[in-house]
Amino acid sequence: MEAFRQYLALCGSLLFWLFVAPFRGKPWRIGHTFAQIVRIGVHAVPMSALTALTIGVVLAMQSAAQLAKLGATVYVPGLVSSSLIRELAPLVTAVIVIGRSGSSVTAELGTMKVSEEIEALEVMAIPPMSYLIIPRFLAMVIMMPLLAVFSIYVGLAGGWLISHYSLHMSTAFYVTHALQYVELRDVGIGLLKSGVFGVLIVTIACSIGLNVSGGAEGVGLATTRSVVVSLLSVFVANALLTALFFF
């Protein structure tokens, strides 16, 4: 309950620093944000790529195995593209980002908290919200949809590998059929989902990190809690968003 109160307090303060403070002469720190974009987003690219590729390959193989029984393997590209764009790319990207970026945000902020660095910033009249949290928030909200788009492409390439080399479809056939079953709206909702996941991941990671107590052990526990809470929130949010837009 206390943790939830801390989370709401962080969100309130975040809204202030995002939308009010820039008009009071405290602009966003662009340099810091770019540094975080590289750490949170760019460094997650190889892992997202590998995961998305395997997901695309597996989707194609599983759907081909089932659809072959009905003689309907022509639907494989559409199945791969719609499940990637609507569900799997945003979700799998979120899981990767929670594992490598959300956890590191919590661990870093938690360590800064226990070593008095956050207090030092406050005393130097450098608000931790502006110096630490806003750059991480912006980086996450910008990079999550971009990573999801990237995962969609790589996942589609994975589906193509199976469709082309195993099901002997031509590339043109694969692409037209993959596009036939998705609308622009699906892409928009997929990106909206990943944006929402990004907000959830970074706010949970920051809130738990900033409220660490109890030394190294506290940092370890907080990092675990951050990953668990983020994963659960993302899965629940995904179900809600799917129900809202597709059901």
Partner: peptide
């Protein structure tokens, strides 16, 4: 005012 923390509290 300036403050010197017990642990130093330098940003790592």
């Amino acid at each position: 005012y300036g403050m010197l923390f017990q642990s130093g509290a330098l940003l790592q």
